[in-house]
């Protein structure tokens, strides 16, 4: 018989059996995820502006000293 030594399945099965698992699919969880997505959309827009402007101005800075 082949001996499987990985533990992940057993760990997760044990946690499920002991009632320690909660799925984050309730309305409040979904709302939190949606809100996070909106915040991260703003972060992404902010990053794109900063990134683009960094590249544009970088071409004007000559390093020679």
């Amino acid at each position: 018989m082949i001996n499987k030594i990985s533990k992940t399945e057993a760990i997760k099965a044990k946690m499920k059996q002991e009632g320690k698992v909660t799925y984050l699919d309730q309305p409040k969880h979904i709302a939190a995820i949606v809100a996070m997505n909106e915040q991260l959309e703003a972060v992404r827009r902010e990053f794109q502006v900063k990134d683009r402007n960094s590249q544009i101005t970088a071409a004007t800075v000559i390093l020679t000293a």
Partner: peptide, 11 residues
């Protein structure tokens, strides 16, 4: 002779 590089060139 080198006159340096700008940051965009280095990148």
């Amino acid at each position: 002779p080198s006159k340096g590089l700008n940051i965009a060139q280095m990148s």
